[in-house]
């Protein structure tokens, strides 16, 4: 039994690649054989976030065009031996992604025994984003608590419900999960930021997790380490919880309430 997960958002810069890297790593840490594919042809970045940019020889487009086989193109992750990375091509354009080609690569990954295949979607609603979501069984919608991101998430949900293979075949719909990233409990408390409940109420998608805004995301990407590996960071813990919930475990939400500073700090500004 193998599942294809698309990580998508419509809007750029909300944390799709950070999330793809951490969810894929989290699933592999749980013992599942996992592959993560970068669909952002022409603007690949997953390799940098995973810290394997110097080991890229062949890419997704090479495999689709039969210029390399899948085993040549897959890169073993340095943290988890159950995880492989399939980078995007940096030189071709997105039209090189054909539906038949993508399907063939996904089927072959499943035959190799990958239990989860995570598709890191490019931003936008164009061909690349559509190819990333076409074969999905599960969709993780990454949303920032901010107006443009929420609206774009709603737009990509509509595309998922119209253009995915499952929607076109008229069968079971794609399972949608909402992941809110860059969340600041303090700003929510101060009424400056949409709460996760607001976002969920607007989008009406089951909530998978809330990832707090944190400096550790930049520290992690600087080093090429998926942030889920950052010890003692809230973001890593929040991603672990997210993976647990994705696997059907019960994990209460953490890092969503603001701990008020003491009275002195409040009086003198903090």
């Amino acid at each position: 039994m193998s599942k294809i997960i698309v990580v998508t958002s419509g809007k750029g810069g909300v944390g799709k690649t950070t999330t793809s890297a951490s969810i894929a790593s989290g699933l592999a840490m749980r013992g599942f054989k996992t592959a993560v594919i970068d669909f952002d042809v022409g603007l690949r970045n997953l390799d940098l976030i995973m810290g394997c940019e110097r080991r890229v020889v062949y890419d997704l487009i090479n495999v689709i065009n039969s210029e390399a086989n899948l085993t040549q193109a897959l890169i073993k992750d340095k943290h988890c031996d159950k995880l492989s990375i399939l980078p995007a091509s940096q030189t071709r354009d997105k039209e090189a992604l054909t539906e038949e080609g993508v399907e063939r690569v996904l089927t072959e990954l499943q035959h190799m025994g990958h239990e989860y295949i995570v598709c890191d979607s490019p931003a936008g609603i164009e061909h690349g984003a559509v190819m990333a979501l076409t074969f999905a069984d599960e969709a993780i919608i990454v949303t920032n608590p901010e107006v443009s991101s929420v609206r774009d998430s709603d737009r990509i949900l509509g595309i998922l419900q119209a253009k995915s293979r499952r929607a076109r075949d008229g069968g079971e719909p794609v399972n949608e999960h909402l992941l809110i990233t860059r969340y600041s409990p303090k700003r929510v408390e101060d009424g400056e930021m949409l709460s996760y409940k607001d976002v969920q109420e607007i989008l009406r998608v089951p909530l998978l997790g809330v990832i707090p805004e944190s400096e550790s995301v930049l520290h992690a990407s600087n080093q090429g380490t998926p942030v889920i590996h950052m010890k003692d960071s809230d973001v890593a813990a929040a991603y672990q919880d997210t993976v647990a919930r994705f696997l059907g475990e019960d994990a209460p939400l953490r890092f969503v309430t603001y701990e008020k500073p003491g009275l002195l700090k409040r009086l003198f500004g903090g």
């Binding site: 929420v150 609206r151 709603d154 009424g191 930021m193 949409l194 709460s195 607007i202």
Partner: peptide, 28 residues
Amino acid sequence: LLDLLFGSKPKSATIAKERLQLIIARER
């Protein structure tokens, strides 16, 4: 402390929520 004593200004998050509900309902 001043905000606590004298009540606060209208919250921008509330405005954001209302605007989103409107535009998304329309687009859907």
